[in-house]
């Protein structure tokens, strides 16, 4: 996983509540057996005027001029401002893969759906939760000022606005460590392999009925 330490980047505002993972990456793209290549299809139904299919050359497709990410001022944005309950719906990890592949490294919103939130961290995408009023204010500032950037500093858990206002945010310490170091969860967990094995043995003795077929085999 790629490390996340600091990011000073252009911000794009996506002003809708309850953006679901079907909207982030529609189901026809879930047929891929790979992790990459989803960026061109991010928000496909909103971004393009035609119907997207996997394998299409998106550079030739008609774009929806009203969709925020198609506006010239937001090209190259790496931070996405979102509204409540972003990422609700399906557990598809294709959603954070698509956001990352498009170029986003951080999301800022008042709340995220649980599974999506978790999936972001597994891929080095930082979802930041701020109070709704603060998010409102950022939306206002971002829309008012073309070229609006934010500087995110994970070690100090702070965001600095162009006017040098500093906003601090909360993050779980384990997730923070993983992001800062680019650690792979599986490697970390396997350090406890002996402990897992001991647990499993005791568990099996207590609950043999969950291991019936395996014992018979």
């Amino acid at each position: 996983m790629e490390k996340f330490i600091r990011l000073d980047a252009l911000v794009a505002p996506l002003d809708r509540a309850n953006v679901d993972t079907d909207a982030i990456i529609p189901k026809q793209f879930l047929k891929s057996i790979h992790r990459s290549g989803f960026g061109p299809y991010l928000f496909d139904a909103w971004r393009y005027l035609d119907r997207g299919e996997p394998g299409m050359d998106c550079s030739k497709r008609p774009k929806n001029p009203d969709f925020v990410l198609n506006q010239p001022r937001y090209q190259g944005a790496q931070i996405l401002l979102v509204r409540e309950n972003f990422g609700c719906g399906s557990s598809r990890e294709h959603a954070p893969w698509a956001l990352l592949d498009y170029g986003f490294r951080a999301l800022i919103g008042p709340s995220f759906a649980d599974i999506f939130y978790n999936n972001c961290f597994k891929n080095g995408l930082l979802p930041i939760v701020l109070p709704a009023e603060e998010v409102d204010r950022l939306f206002g500032e971002c829309e008012a000022a073309p070229g609006y950037r934010l500087a995110i500093d994970l070690p100090s858990q702070s965001i600095t606005t162009p006017e040098d206002r500093v906003i601090s945010f909360e993050i779980d310490s384990f997730r923070k460590e993983c992001l800062l170091n680019g650690w792979d969860d599986i490697g970390l967990t396997l350090r406890h392999a002996d402990e897992i094995r001991r647990f499993e043995e005791a568990y099996r003795a207590r609950h043999p009925y969950y291991f019936v077929e395996e014992s018979a085999a």
């Binding site: 598809r92 990890e93 599974i115 969860d185 599986i186 967990t189 392999a193």
Partner: peptide, 12 residues
């Protein structure tokens, strides 16, 4: 769970 977690559960 997400796909990274599918892999995590498979492995651990």
């Amino acid at each position: 769970i997400g796909t990274s977690e599918v892999e995590h559960v498979l492995a651990t």
